[in-house]
Write a protein that binds this DNA or RNA. Structure first.
Length: 359
DNA sequence: AAGACGGGGCA
DNA sequence: TGCCCAGTCTT
């Protein structure tokens, strides 16, 4: 850290910063389905559910899922009692399906370990499935008024700019966390955390931040220097390989298609898929393609397949289609084509279905 | 410490 | 179309 940086940090007016931010939040707070009204106590169940959904996922995407979940399962005990497959079906499209499996485990643990009441202690929360540092601090501060430092990607960016942190992420995380702890107030810690995240999402954006609207720009080292977009610095990322595969869409006479269940853990764990080859970096051999067919049939190759990008690889998936009569109950799970939206089908395979429909 | 793990938004 | 975004768990 530079001498300038140390001096700025040592002299930082943390109390004034929190005051300005909370005042801005009171005037501009976003109305979101999971937020309590001003002055009302937040429901820990709703805070937990929303925070898990918001991991790696935008507010816009989460909103409708949150309403659906809380309508269907109003209390944590309702979620704990639901079959996992029902939960996965409603989660389909949100991604990171381990979150849904852990959501179910966590609901059951809250019932079993805590009598159906969420604990307020960040350490106890942190011990529950699917709750890490971020979510534990978010629940403790938002639902229980515990002064815990909440740091997500938005907060990391805001802090890196306020203090012109020169170390790249993820190496800088401990320093950013220490600065967040220094700034988090004892009063209204939950509103402070939500204010920082709102600021990062709406004003202190990755590109072209709207500093003219920022309540704390006068206390922002990057704004003073005019170098906002330089922060946060990041370590270079590895490039993604491309994998290839073939999948089979077997259409039954009555309009149902054949699906099978993926293994409970790993990529798209516990979700449904169209049968097919494994996905490999070298294109699958003719033998491997033939061996992956669910039955011998007159398979027709679609002219264009699907390209889909996962976190760590691209996938090019070719599609083969065939028709059969009724029967074949043992082959897998038959689902009516128009009911594919109601089952635990990840977006990748929803794209495959859509492509088949278009020919 | 590094890699696994989706899908949506935006240029 | 291609690039960016970013919590938790596992190894």
């Amino acid at each position: 850290m530079s001498a300038d940086n140390r001096a700025w940090t040592a002299a930082y007016p943390a109390a004034r910063h929190a005051e300005l931010l909370l005042d801005w939040y009171d005037r501009h707070r976003r109305r979101l389905p999971w937020r309590a009204l001003p002055g009302e106590q937040a429901d820990p169940y709703r805070v937990w559910l929303s925070e898990v959904m918001l991991q790696q996922t935008t507010v816009q995407t989460v909103a409708s899922y949150f309403v659906d979940f809380t309508t269907r399962w109003p209390k944590v005990g309702d979620l704990a009692a639901a079959p996992l497959d029902d939960l996965l079906a409603r989660w389909a499209g949100l991604g990171y399906y381990a979150r849904a499996r852990n959501l179910h485990k966590c609901a059951q643990a809250v019932v079993a370990r805590h009598g159906g009441v969420f604990p307020s202690d960040p350490e106890a929360l942190r011990a529950l499935p699917g709750i890490g540092d971020y979510t534990a601090a978010a629940i403790a501060s938002i639902a229980f008024d515990v002064s815990a430092a909440v740091m997500d990607g938005n907060v990391e960016r805001v802090i890196a700019r306020l203090f012109t942190v020169e170390d790249p992420l993820p190496k800088s995380k401990p320093a950013l966390k220490a600065l967040t702890e220094m700034l988090t107030p004892l009063k209204r810690p939950g509103d402070y955390a939500q204010a920082m995240m709102d600021l990062g999402a709406t004003i202190c954006t990755p590109k072209r931040p709207a500093c003219g609207l920022c309540p704390v720009r006068g206390h922002c080292a990057a704004w003073v220097a005019g170098t906002m977009e330089r922060y946060p610095l990041k370590a270079p990322k590895a490039d993604k390989p491309t994998r290839h595969g073939v999948c089979y869409v077997l259409m039954r006479k009555d309009g149902a298609v054949l699906l099978r269940k993926r293994p409970e853990s790993g990529l798209l764990g516990g979700m449904l898929e169209f049968p097919g080859t494994v996905w490999t970096e070298s294109a699958p051999t003719v033998e491997a393609i033939a061996a992956a067919a669910p039955i011998k049939a007159d398979w027709r190759d679609l002219a264009t397949g699907i390209r889909h990008t996962f976190t760590h690889f691209h996938l090019e998936l070719s599609i083969r289609v065939a028709q059969v009569g009724l029967g074949y109950p043992k082959l897998g799970r038959w689902v009516a084509f128009e009911k594919l939206g109601d089952v635990e089908l990840p977006t990748l395979f929803a794209k495959v279905a859509k492509r088949v429909l278009k020919g």
